[in-house]
Design a protein around this nucleic acid. Structure first.
Lengths: 146, 146
DNA sequence: TATTGTTATACTCTATAACTATA
DNA sequence: TATAGTTATAGAGTATAACAATA
């Protein structure tokens, strides 16, 4: 049962390994110097475009002030656009620009390569199972406190 | 195949969720104000005591300068001891003090609770499978570049 | 009055490189 | 000359709260 707590260490270690493998290759793709979290933001926007900042905050599990500033940075770099929603004037909808899409694809290419290597010890079936288990954990968001 | 890159997002999201659930409960256990990484350091030391700093660096996937400073902080707080190895004078062996062990158990208790809740959507069998897949990924460290 | 997003600030974490001591 | 660990420093990421605009 103490094993439960070590799962947290393992998940952290896995994330760290991906990060460590990705970092030295940043020159290959991070032409706009968006950094690791900027890159993840682009990935997240690319997945659910157009997306509002609140949804991004929830999906990325980060603070809204942080996302807000990051969004401004990416906007200033011309990688995303921010447009006020017609339905609700408080909401801004984010979209990738052409440059943003291009940057996203560069990130995805290298990230895919890195994740491929990190996941290599698993067979295809195991990789699929791992991904499905992750989904199952993440999609049930019905927790007490949000 | 683009799915590969989204695995990285999911792993990050999972780690973030654990962190987010843990954070508001820090008052329950973080009496020595060691912070999240200090806590992970204690967990890692507790798993492989006595451990040297190099091994910690490798296991935690963090920078040695960071670990070095963190170790000093924990030592100053009386949670761990640092002892020069007899075999190799360059190596310091780390051990938990009694206070450190106590702190560790508080962290484990809360972390176990948090991880238990996060993993709840999975059945016992699925949780075991997930943990084993994590192990399988992490224990094959035979990669090209280290 | 609640919600979306912004700003300000202080703090922690991270990366790099130059360094000391031991091997 | 190589390795274990330290120090210094600059930069990136984070949490909190107070704020403005819209609902």
């Amino acid at each position: 049962m103490v094993e439960s707590s070590s799962i947290a260490l393992k998940i952290d270690q896995l994330m760290r390994r991906i990060h460590a493998d990705l970092h030295p290759r940043a020159v290959e793709f991070d032409h706009h110097r968006v950094g690791p979290i900027g890159g993840m933001l682009l990935l997240a926007i690319g997945e659910r475009e157009p997306i509002d900042i609140g949804a991004l905050v929830q999906q990325m599990g980060r603070d809204k002030s942080q996302i807000s500033r990051l969004v401004q940075t990416l906007e200033r770099k011309g990688l995303i656009t921010k447009e006020q929603s017609i339905d609700d004037g408080r909401v801004s909808l984010l979209r990738l620009t052409e440059a943003g899409g291009h940057q996203l694809r560069s990130i995805q290419a290298v990230l895919m390569d890195v994740v491929f290597k990190v996941m290599e010890p698993l067979s295809d079936r195991e990789q699929a199972a791992f991904s499905q288990l992750l989904d199952k954990i993440l999609t049930s968001r019905n927790r007490d406190a949000d």
